[in-house]
Design a protein around this nucleic acid. Structure first.
Lengths: 110, 110
DNA sequence: ATACTTACTTACATAAAGTAACTTAATTAG
DNA sequence: CTAATTAAGTTACTTTATGTAAGTAAGTAT
């Protein structure tokens, strides 16, 4: 019964990053500020969930939502400093994936 | 319409790691080989999902399930080399969490 | 006036996760 | 010997998360 107990900060980080789509949304925003529909069509997420994720990420301070008063108005999402700070994590995953992930063969062989 | 298209290996890695509990199970196994109930009680996962995750991780080649024929039999889960190779990812997250995650205050203040 | 675009929201359907009880085999307690 | 306990799961059922598709409001284009 002497579990070392997992660090709550680490757990919080994990639960954020292991929500479906969160990492990909951030990854996409690393390419630069983007609008709702751009993110939507760049990854396979649904509008409903993207909307949820962006709100959550904004709430967590990783993403900034900016209303640009051109006509018509443009709504732009971008990473905050905290959001940018996720980059090394994603690069490490990217790296790992190149070394260890086999590409799915989508031929009919089974 | 010229989405650069996300690398399928990276996407596969993300979809593996962003499954709930997967990262924590691996993190726990970094401490050494463990039995089902040890993992179960070290993180807040349910038996059903742990069972699913271990099967998936075994299938993906990250975890090895070993039946040790003592009496009574012991079933031990451990990381393969591929499983171990996830460590840098988790360390990067750990690091990030120390720098950027605020501990939840669980006092009654709101 | 009609149709289209952007940035969403809503209602409903399906999939994933949580809960708790149950199983099987073996072990120990009384 | 019988009852209770442990390990490693599984099963049935509930709740939560995600997906799908249609709808909305404001503005633009034709």
């Amino acid at each position: 019964m002497k579990q070392p107990t997992i660090c709550p900060k680490f757990e919080k980080a994990i639960s954020l990053l292991s929500q479906r789509w969160t990492a990909l949304v951030i990854y996409q925003l690393l390419l630069g500020p983007q609008r709702f529909n751009e993110i939507l069509s760049s990854i396979g997420i649904s509008g409903k969930v993207l909307s949820d994720r962006l709100k959550e990420l904004e709430y967590q301070g990783l993403v900034k939502r900016e209303v640009i008063p051109e006509t018509p108005v443009i709504i732009e999402y971008s990473l905050t400093e905290k959001g940018q700070s996720i980059e090394p994590i994603l690069r490490t995953i990217e790296n790992w994936s190149q070394l260890w992930v086999k590409e799915e063969s989508d031929s009919t062989e089974n």
